[in-house]
Amino acid sequence: MGILEVKNVGKRFGGLQALGDVNLSVKENTVHAIIGPNGAGKSTLLNCLVGKLIPDTGSVMFDGQSVLGRKPYEINQMGISRVFQTPEIFGDLTVLENMLIPCFAKRDGAFSLNAITSVPSETDVLEKAEKMLVEMNMADKRHMHSASLSRGDKRRLEIGMCLSQEPRLLLLDEPTAGMARADTNNTIDLLKEIKEQRDITIAIIEHDMHVVFSLADRITVLAQGTPLVEDDPQNIRGNPKVREAYLGESA
């Protein structure tokens, strides 16, 4: 049994069958990559996992509990954090405040009318956020407006925010899309570090083969809304079906 079990999931938008019959099992403490050509249904699948979309058929189980019909914030509180394709951070707030918010969400839950204390007096949460900033190598930027960070730093911050919630499953939606080579390599190193140092399961959707093959323990290839193959990276590389559906195009 994997930590995330997707069974027979289908999703239709009008005349378009975005997802046919998806089965997917993500094992605990592995990095599972989902790849596929444009329009293969990767993002639709991800949106079904986090509560943005509700699939028409099938089931999605996280750690033995169904996530279907739950709101995104409820699913997050179950232990699934999501990193977006374009970094979604609180642009009007400082880097430190960005890090504080998930720490408060972790401690106080989905809603808390904590208007009595002041932020500087919440030492436990502050310490945790500061520690995460150090881990993310951003401590010197803590008072910067997060909107003025570079793309790579925004990504780092977003990943740090997700990690500070101590999620069991981290979902990454093309984390290196639109990044310069150096930023991409930094992100790969960061993700490798996270994988080695934490008890965390990572599911990653990615276009960049370099990223996929340097991180993934297991790869699912999606084409036209159905999984084509699921295998180890070295077997995927040599698989003729995959070459035809995906790698063949770019080669």
């Binding site: 914030y73 609180f90 918010i101």
Partner: peptide, 21 residues
């Protein structure tokens, strides 16, 4: 307060709020 910070976060990015639990 933390509550006030959350309110500013609502103004800044509701999507991130929802996906931060």
């Amino acid at each position: 307060s933390p509550f006030g910070m959350m309110l500013r976060a609502v103004k800044s990015n509701q999507q991130r709020m929802n996906y931060t639990g």
